[in-house]
């Protein structure tokens, strides 16, 4: 019985850089939520910044960027599957 060799993953230095970027984006999000001038674009801005953080974590920390495409498909199926669920729920309660 042999042991499976994992796909090569990034070096620790890259993880520290990714963590720094995540911290900076979080700081930007919090700052943006307090700036009144950004109110008209706040929702898309915060959703965009949240999506960036989400993407960075799944790509680098969860290794989806380096792993088998099947894993990416399975996960994204769940992520995008929740969108019609959201729409159906809002329609059910006449909130859309």
């Amino acid at each position: 019985m042999t042991v499976v060799q994992h796909t090569a993953h990034p070096a620790p230095k890259l993880y520290w850089i990714v963590a720094l970027i995540l911290a900076l984006v979080t700081a930007l999000e919090v700052a943006a939520s307090y700036i009144d001038a950004l109110d008209p674009v706040l929702v898309p801005l915060l959703l965009g910044l949240g999506a960036i953080k989400f993407g960075i974590v799944i790509a680098f920390f969860m290794h989806l960027k380096f792993d088998r495409p099947l894993y990416r498909s399975l996960f994204l199926l769940g992520v995008f599957g929740s969108i019609p669920l959201f729409v159906v729920l809002l329609l059910t309660f006449n909130a859309l």
């Binding site: 599957g81 929740s82 669920l85 959201f86 809002l90």
Partner: peptide, 23 residues
């Protein structure tokens, strides 16, 4: 693969609760 299927299903689980909160 099983873990990724589980995590995909968890997205639906939390998606439902986030939708409820927004409602």
């Amino acid at each position: 693969t099983g873990m990724w299927v589980f995590l995909g299903s968890e997205c639906i689980f939390f998606g439902a609760m986030i939708s409820t909160f927004l409602l």
